[in-house]
């Protein structure tokens, strides 16, 4: 089964990295995967987004019109991408920065959690993306938890051991959260 995910937020929230970790983990789990960024005249404080397709077979378009999952980190991104979810899809919303939407017309699954606030409690606002990743992977088992942790480790290794710990803690918080909302 092909799973198509649109990830969007403000520049600086780690949306591209979140997509990359997801894509690398999928590759490591021997799936086919594409990652497509928004590129070009991006500005600080504007919206940043990327599209990730994970499949067992050859992938056609890396561009996503209607997604199976949306991961949305701020209000402008919700205005832009909120209507691009397939019926039955998953909407992962950052409650810290996005207003709770009115009951949607389409039948969807809303996961509304304060990723930014949780990240601050864990130790840094910067790991909100990793909290969301943990939560998302607990809900949708797209890649193995161990694989995601392995990729986070290798990415954080480039910075420092403390950063590894911080990110793993963030991932675990998110994962537990995701298991609870199931």
């Amino acid at each position: 089964m092909e799973h198509r995910i649109i990830l969007a937020g403000a520049g600086g929230q780690g949306i591209m990295l979140l997509g990359k970790i997801l894509a690398e983990a999928a590759m490591k789990d021997n799936k086919t995967v594409t990652w497509l960024p928004s590129y070009g005249a991006e500005v600080r404080g504007g919206t940043a987004n990327c599209m990730v397709v994970i499949s067992e077979e050859e992938i056609g378009s890396p561009y996503i019109d209607q997604a199976d999952s949306l991961i949305i980190f701020n209000q402008p991104s919700f205005e832009r991408f909120g209507n691009r979810l397939l019926p039955g899809g998953i909407l992962l919303l950052n409650a810290s920065l996005v207003e709770k939407p009115a009951f949607p017309k389409k039948k969807i699954r809303l996961i509304y959690q304060p990723f930014t606030d949780i990240a601050m409690k864990v130790g840094s606002v910067k790991v909100a993306n990793i909290v969301a990743l943990g939560c998302f992977l607990a809900v949708v088992k797209l890649v193995r938890k161990e694989t995601a942790i392995e990729i986070i480790r290798s990415k954080a290794k480039e910075v420092s051991p403390q950063i590894i710990e911080l990110n793993l803690k963030a991932f675990e918080e998110g994962f537990i959260l995701g298991q609870d909302v199931k």
Binding site: M27, L36, Y39, P62
Partner: peptide, 10 residues
């Protein structure tokens, strides 16, 4: 094209 240049794949 821009899509091929920008996208990541294994």
């Amino acid at each position: 094209d821009g899509m091929l240049g920008q996208m990541m794949e294994p």
